[in-house]
Structure formats: structure tokens, C-alpha cells
Design a protein around this nucleic acid. Structure first.
Lengths: 196, 196, 196, 196
DNA sequence: CATGAATGAGTATTCATTCAT
DNA sequence: GATGAATGAATACTCATTCAT
């Protein structure tokens, strides 16, 4: 009688916290960290501004939480994509596609990782840098498997690709391109084995 | 002689305005537009906050002025670089190097163009977009001269290169690399004539 | 002894309440009433902020409880000290010493009585004033037993002594002085019987 | 004919700043530092809360300014009072009276010095302590001139008197007593030359 | 005997901007 | 070519407190 249904136990869960996280992701991705106020965030989830601080100790920490989730999602997408693929260039290509899909269609979390600069997080800048590095290490691994002449070429390829991929958000218009076709084109421009 | 202050007397013109512009460029490039307050800018040039408004009607307009100067400088550098070079791939390479030099060693104005997102300018976002497009057109011209199969390949190359180049600021450490070596490496990864 | 937690089991009664009271005493004494937040108090005893309100209806009431305990403790110390002493000046001196010991070495409760101003308690200011008066009456009794010329001299002596004693906390450095030596010196400065 | 009167030059002076300082003194003295909000202060002088920060960089600095003025005023009053008085005990008595007058009738600035605890000023606590010490040094000088047996007696007398005097505000009711009569009574309780 | 989740009002402070002088 | 003095609105954040569970 007291509880309306047996499921009553769980629902009081932390879905306000995650609603808040979602709103933060969207706003940070779309307008930037500094251009987003805690009021906007609160309004977006129907809280009062002060109530945010029940869930997160500061706006900075909220950013770190979003960023962390963003990195986690891109990593997961990339790992899922390369799973079962054997050819090293093929693995790199599907990884790039997954990366780009995460950035363009994959929701706001991933976009935050590319849009927000670590230094915006103030004290927590180092946390963001560590997260970013963790992801780049995953990419380094994929590139290490290629038959490239030396470490310099590997580093150059990693930075060329990640730069180009992360910049896509600045000009991407859905419909005209898809993540897959963009990556196809980018990879097509590369000289595979016979690099200088 | 009588007065001890070393205040520069010579450049009679409005060097207050350009000092302000310089300070804005540095701050916007280093910390971002929203993270820079007009007070900081004023303090940096020894003005009172209100005095900024004698020179510029708003903080947004100040950004537009900086951005405009930034684009102007990159354009000038690129044009100077390609001048007298004939081979299309060679022209592209020196252009990329000039672009990267402007970004990395060329002072704050150019960095603002890459760091600040047009939407940060509010009303004036369109002005910034127009400026960015103007510059990209210059780049498109250089790429059009290459022997690439179709318009898609040309577009892909432009976006790949600009993305990779503009991303460099996120990882560049002076000493280890130079703009020239970075561009050499990037170009070396590309399949020249025989692109797919 | 199965469980590793050292949690005291014995004092069955509401030792959470008294832990809270202790924390409040310490914080109010050290930092003042307004400078102490209920969150700090809760954190100090490992509660959540809301849980305070199970034990006390408001922060003000918490202050009253601490203050009450503080007065009670000073009273008890003074009464214990004068017990068995006969000479009136001697009684006054040991009372002063007990008062000062309570203030300086006697824990936070007593210090709150001297540090916190009644008006800080808002509604409950009158409660604090009543408590303070109750204690001063005890002191008046001791002074009434002295061979002083008139009521004015008695009042002056009471206020001189209490003022000087209560001010000691502002300059006291343990080691250099002790409550006993301070009181000795103060009493030594007084003209005993032959007051003007 | 531009200026309405020759006096026009001065009046735009800093009288808003000093109105603000006055309001701060009154509020800090009457209700304490933490219990006074910047809003109240601003409202008291008809400013908006933010406008305070044109005049003072922080609430703490405002306190320091008030405190400084308070010490200055007590010092001035004491120095004025002892001027022309020769007998050392007489000098001490008029100094005490001046001190007490400053505290009780002399406006809020002096009261702040006694009411607010240095630690309330946060960062600026040391500034307040330095000011308080400066004033106590003045008092030490007056006491050094007395024919007291040793340095301990001098120190004890200084602390006894200052304590008693500063505590007066807690029980003083105008009308019943005056600073002069209170000091007379206090001094009358002291054993002059023949101290133990 | 409490907690989890919030509220609503308030905190000090900062913002871009204005405008008479 | 500014300054001095503010404005008005917003900022991130903290407060004591509530209450269903």
C-alpha cells in the first residue's frame, strides 16, 4: 500500500544528477564553458542554482565530470569499432570514423572534449589534460601498429589525423558529409606504406 | 629631460588604441574571450576600464578588430611566402609553413583567429565568420592549382590541412619542433599526384 | 570483536548529540558564531547538515545549549574553588583563578561564553543574557562579602575584575603566564581594605 | 559660466567613500563584521552593492580602513587628553577617561576596534593586530612613567586596565554612569605607590 | 537516528557599460 | 583622450533549514 510499485526503490536514484550532467554537456559543448552560467544549467533541469552544489562541489568539477564522461565515451566507441578488425590501416580508419561519429553525432559529451580547453577548468586543468592524454595514448597504439618508417612519422600522423578530425566540427554540416565519407577522404589523401 | 617618466612621446598618433588592441590580442589568445575581462585589458595598458569605450564601442567590437588584424596578418604572411614560388605543391607547402609560423611565433593576433570561436562575439559572430571564410578562400586558391582528381578531394585536402595546422597549437612545444619541420612531416604523409 | 570499527558502544545514550555540542563549542569559541556554518559542524562530527536538526531545532538553539553548558561549567569550577575557603579576599582570588582557568584551559564551552555576544543569538539573545547575569550574580555574592565602603565600589570592583579577566584571552600565551600568576598580579594591584 | 561656483571643484570629492566608511563603522560596531552584509552597507548609503567595490577592493579591506580610523581616533583622543598633564597617575587617569569616552560616546569607529576580532578580517587579520599593538604601545608608555616596582607589575596594570575598560561596553548604560565616573572608580580601587 | 535531495534566500564579488566632467 | 564614480545585472557559491523516506 505504501509503495505504489515494487520498482519504487530505484527511481529516486541519481537521475537529477545525471540530468544535470547532460545539461552541462550540452551547454558546454554548444556555448563554451565560460559562456554557460550555473543559472542556465539549473534552469535547464528545473533546479534552483544553489541546488547544483548538492551534486557537484563547483562548476569546475562539473566540467571535469562531463569531460571525463566524454573521454570515456569516445574511448568506448573507438574500442568497439576496432574490435575484430585486423588490418592495421583498417583499424586506424574505423577508429577515426568512430572518433568522428562520437564528435559529430555522438552527443554533447564527446564534443566538450574537443571544444573546451583544459585551462578553462582552472584548478582542475591538469585533470582534463590527463584525460586527454589517456585518449591520445589509445590512438598512439593504433598508429604504432602501422608500417611507418620512424617515430617521427608516427607522431606526425597521429597529430595530423587528430587535428584534422577535431577540426571537423568547425565546418561540418550534417547531410552533405558523413563521418564515414570524411574519414574515407582523409585516409585517401595519405600515402600509405611508401611515406617519405 | 626634466621629467623622469620615460613615456614615449614620439608616435603621436593613437598609440593608446593600438596598445589596447595588442593587450586584447594577447589576452584573448592566451585565456580566451570570455575569460578576459575589460578590466584586465584596461589594467594591462594603464587605463581605467571606462576609457576603453573611448576607443571601441564594446568588447565585441574590440574582438572583431583583433580578429580582423589577425586574419590580415596571416594572409599577408602567406602571400609573402608564396610570392615567387611556382610549383603548386611547393606553393602549398610554403603557405602552410607561413600559416603555422604566424600561429606559433607570429604574435597573439593570429592565435586569436584560431582560438576564439566566432559565436563568442555575439552580434558580431557573422563578421568573424566572414573574415575566416575570406582567409580560407585564399587557401582554396592554392589547392585548386594542384592536380587533384575532383572537387571533393580538394575540399578534403583543405580541411585536413587547416585542421591539422590549427590544432598544432594544442601540442606545440617550441624547441622540439619548428613550423617548418612540422609542415615537412605533414606534407610527407600525403600522397601527392596519385591520390585516390 | 568481529567488527574492526572502534566505534564506542558503551555510552548508550545520545552521544551523537553531545559530540555535536562539543563541535559547536569548539567552533563557536575559535571562530565565532556567525563564522561557523552548520555544515562545518556537521562535517566535524560526521553527520550530514540536515541531521543536526534532529538534535536541535536551530543553530540558535545550539548556541544557547553550548552557552548554557559553558556558564554551568564556569559556575561549577568557581563553586568548587571557593568551597572550604573562608577569608573573603581569598575566596575572591581563588574564584578569579578558577574563572580564568575555565576560560583558558577549560575547554571551549567556557570560551564561548566570553567570545560570543548575546545579540548574535537573534531571538534567543535574552536567554544568553539571563545566563550571563546568573553567573555574574555569583560573583557579586563573593564581592558583597568584602569590606568595601559602598555599593558603587562593589559594582566597580566586579566589573573591573570580570572585564580584566575576560579580556585575558586576547593576549594570553600559555607558558609565559598561568591563570594563577595572572590573578595574583591583578589582585596585587588592588588596594584592599582602604579603598577610596 | 560653466561652473556654478568656484567651490564646485571640491564637492565631488570622496564623500561617498566616507559615507560608506561611516556606515561600515556603525554596522560593524553594532552588529559585528560577519553579521553585516555588503547589501546592508550599500543600502545604508544609497548605493548598489557592487558600487562598494569601486571604493574598496573587498569587505575585508573596508574593515581594515574602519579599524585603522578607529585606532587613529582613540590615539588622537588619548594624546589630546594627556597633553599638558604632568603627574603620571593623573596622565593615566585622563588617558583612560579619553579611551572610554572614545569607546562609549565617540562614535562607531572606536567601538569597532574593541568589538571586532582581528581574525574576522581573514587575510587582513595581521593588519588589525598591528594597529591594535600600536595603540597598546601608547598605553605602555603612560604606564612606564609610573613608580611601579617592576616590569611585571607594569604589564599587569596595562592589561588589567585595558581589559576592564574595553569590557565596559558590555554593561554600560548611558545616564547611570559616565566615562569619567567609571574611570574614577576603577582608579580608586588601585593601590597606587605601595603595590605588592 | 538519521539521510538524500533539495529549497529559497542570501553571500561577496565581478561584469560590461555609461556619462558628466 | 581620457577619468571618476558609479550602475544594473549577473557571477559562482553558501546559508540555515525542510521533509519524505
Amino acid at each position: 500500500m505504501a509503495r505504489t510499485t515494487v520498482k519504487e526503490r530505484a527511481p529516486r536514484q541519481d537521475n537529477r544528477r545525471s540530468a544535470l550532467l547532460d545539461a552541462a554537456a550540452t551547454h558546454f559543448a554548444d556555448r563554451g564553458f565560460h559562456a554557460t552560467s550555473t543559472r542556465e544549467l539549473a534552469a535547464a533541469v528545473g533546479m534552483l542554482p544553489g541546488s547544483i552544489y548538492y551534486h557537484f562541489p563547483s562548476k569546475n568539477d562539473l566540467l571535469v565530470a562531463v569531460y571525463d564522461e566524454g573521454v570515456r565515451r569516445i574511448e568506448a566507441a573507438v574500442e568497439r569499432a576496432v574490435d575484430g578488425v585486423d588490418d592495421p590501416w583498417q583499424r586506424l580508419e574505423v577508429a577515426c570514423t568512430a572518433h568522428l561519429e562520437a564528435l559529430l553525432d555522438g552527443g554533447a559529451y564527446a564534443r566538450v572534449v574537443v571544444r573546451v580547453q583544459p585551462e578553462d577548468a582552472g584548478d582542475a586543468a591538469d585533470d582534463l589534460i590527463a584525460l586527454r592524454d589517456r585518449y591520445e595514448a589509445l590512438f598512439s597504439g593504433l598508429i604504432a601498429a602501422l608500417d611507418l618508417p620512424d617515430v617521427s612519422a608516427r607522431r606526425a600522423l597521429r597529430l595530423l589525423l587528430l587535428g584534422a578530425l577535431n577540426w571537423v566540427q568547425h565546418w561540418y554540416r550534417p547531410g552533405r558529409d558523413t563521418p564515414r565519407t570524411i574519414v574515407r577522404r582523409f585516409m585517401g589523401l595519405l600515402a600509405r606504406g611508401e611515406t617519405a
